[in-house]
Amino acid sequence: MDVVDEPAAADPADAALTATGVRRAFGTVQAVVSADLAIAPGQVTALIGPNGAGKTTLMLMLAGLLAPDAGTITVGGANMRRSPVKARTRVGWMPDTLGTWDSLTCLEVVTTFARAYGIKATDARARAFELLTRFQLAEFASRPARVLSRGQKQRLSLARAIVHDPAVLILDEPASGLDPRARAELRTVLRELAAEGKAILISSHVLAELDEMVDDAVFMFAGSTRGTEASEHLERARRRYSVIGLDAAALQKALAAQTRAWETTEAGAIVEVADAADAAALNAELVAAGVAVAALAPVGSALESTYLSLEGEQR
């Protein structure tokens, strides 16, 4: 995981998309109680929460499809309420399914959406083909979208969502139902898009998957986002490294001689390091002290441990 030194988009002015105090009810059901988030350009931010936490509702509001009852959403300076078309143009939204496009070919689906965003016919076709090629769908260009596999459909859906080159990309459960290979490919694609400077918000249940692709995370429970508290948690979780020595006793003895906080485990210890560089320094110190280090790596999934502890507080 790319370790982030400071919480992403701490300054909302730099954020590609910000949401403040957003709430939304359906009848008597308060789907989103209070959501605040800011996603930064060039970063992948995860939106994590249990089923029914309001993630999809929040994403629909961010995509400009659902009006919040209160709160403001701003995309690149454009207010979603005051200039909805301008704001919508800057957002690419990928719903959890591609939709049933029947006999429409892959090229037609993407071209149609390029034109729907106002791109000229000839450019639209070129742009669509460029995206299909980029996502390894060129061979399916003239085949109906319904023949694609789930993974291919998700890639087509992503091509459709970014056809107008939006600054912000909102992906609702893109990894669900994908096989490991398709997931890995999705991860690569999203990292590439982030490297191009797009701000990406992704919701998912597969926390271990997210661990490897996100820079930051927003946790959402029962309609509310958990900001600083979750960030601190996540930060701490990310700094916990598991060290396994061939001789656990010797390892623990060496650890007792240094200043970092640590706790013993069966095979060695868990050490709280300052950052990745500090982890490397720790390794060097241990080796210098003559400890045979078998493994030194982050403990499990930082997102998962944060999720579980926050969810535990929720109960």
């Binding site: 499809l65 078309v85 919508r88 939204w93 939709g99 049933t100 959406f113 969502a161």
Partner: peptide, 14 residues
């Protein structure tokens, strides 16, 4: 139901 309306609504088409 087919999921083909919302993506269109999200575009600049009125």
């Amino acid at each position: 139901k087919d999921g083909t309306l919302a993506p269109l609504q999200a575009t600049t088409l009125s």
